[in-house]
Amino acid sequence: MYDTEVLKPSNTGKLIADLIPQTYAFLWSRTEVDHALLDLIKNEKYQPFIIFPSEYATEEQQVFHQSVVLNNKKQPLFILLDGSWREAKKMFRKSPYLQGIPILSIDPQQLLAKDYLPKYHIRTSAKGHQLATAEVAALVLAVIGEHNNAAILDSWFDYYNYQYQRSVCQSNKGDAEAEQRYKRLIAK
């Protein structure tokens, strides 16, 4: 997480930790690397992937588009950079320890529909592939075959999105049925 992202009530990264038990969160610093993060990335139990658009990949980075090849003996470790897009790009560029990690590039227009629009209305993005952190995490879960967990996270995100917009009295473009859909999914 970018250092200020954790303080923002509009942060969606926290929604992942609400539902996925093995979630780790680290504050990013340009000058200091959290050794627990490095240990996690280097742990032989995991196969790390950074979730980021392929256009930012370095020449030596392996890029997967919409799917990954997993080593059956290892658990996937998906690294999401949580912050605004300007912050996420800075985190990606200024973190040399991420440069050798394969990229999983998610394009919602290819995975969902050509006319897919991001559902996060609290902050706006410059490009259609720039989704909220929780939206991306739900797509990643779907890509690896965790469709039920993807649907639960997606509906939890919709519910949060709707309630947040209600709480700040802004024009609400969220899904008013999100709470009922979320409750139905977790009751299964």
Rank of each mutant, 00 (worst) to 15 (best):
Lys8Glu: 10
Lys14Met: 13
Tyr97Asp: 00
Asp115Tyr: 05
Asn11Glu: 12
Leu104Asp: 00
Ala17Tyr: 09
Pro102Ile: 01
Leu185Ile: 03
Ala134Thr: 02
Ala134Trp: 08
His121Asp: 12
Gly13Val: 03
Gln110Val: 07
Val68Cys: 08
Ser167Ala: 14
Pro76Tyr: 04
Ala151Cys: 13
Lys94Tyr: 12
Ser67Phe: 11
Arg184Thr: 13
Val168Trp: 05
Ile41Gly: 13
Thr58Val: 12
Gly83Ile: 01
Lys183Ser: 06
Ile152Leu: 08
Val136Ile: 12
Ala57Val: 03
Tyr162Trp: 08
Ala132Thr: 02
Pro21Ala: 04
Phe49Asp: 12
Asn11Pro: 05
Lys74Ala: 06
Ser67Met: 14
Ser29Asn: 15
Ala25Leu: 11
Trp156Cys: 05
Gln163Met: 01
Glu177Asp: 12
Ala113Lys: 03
Phe157Ala: 02
Gln62His: 11
Tyr2Thr: 04
Asp3Trp: 09
Lys119Met: 09
Asp18Phe: 09
Leu80Gln: 04
Phe157Met: 10
Lys42Cys: 07
Lys14Cys: 13
Asp39Ser: 15
Pro108Trp: 02
Leu80Ala: 04
Thr4Ile: 14
Glu179Lys: 15
Ala137Ser: 09
Lys45Gly: 10
Gly83Cys: 04
Asn148Ala: 14
Lys90Ala: 06
Asp39Pro: 13
Asn72Cys: 09
His129Tyr: 13
Trp28Glu: 11
Tyr159His: 07
Asn43Val: 10
Val33Phe: 07
Glu55Lys: 13
Asn71Thr: 09
Ala178Leu: 05
Glu44Ile: 00
Val33Arg: 05
Ile79Val: 04
Gln75Asp: 11
Glu177Phe: 12
Glu5Phe: 08
Asp107Met: 04
Thr124Leu: 07
Lys183Ile: 00
Ile41Gln: 08
Pro108Glu: 00
Phe92Met: 10
Glu135Leu: 02
Lys74Trp: 01
Arg184Met: 01
Cys169Asn: 13
Gln22Leu: 15
Phe78Ala: 00
Asn43Leu: 01
Asp158Gln: 05
Gln22Ser: 14
Ile101Pro: 06
Glu59Phe: 14
Arg181Phe: 06
Tyr46Asp: 01
Gln170Ile: 10
Thr12Ile: 05
Pro48Val: 01
Gln62Trp: 04
Leu117Gln: 13
Thr4Ser: 10
Phe157Leu: 03
Ala150Pro: 10
Leu77Gln: 06
Asp39Trp: 11
Asn161Ile: 02
Trp156Lys: 08
Leu81Ser: 09
Val136Lys: 06
Ala138Thr: 00
Ala88Cys: 12
Trp85Asp: 00
Leu7Tyr: 15
Ile16Asn: 04
Ser84Gly: 08
Asn71Arg: 11
Thr31Glu: 02
Lys183Thr: 02
Glu32Asp: 13
Arg181Lys: 14
Ala132Pro: 08
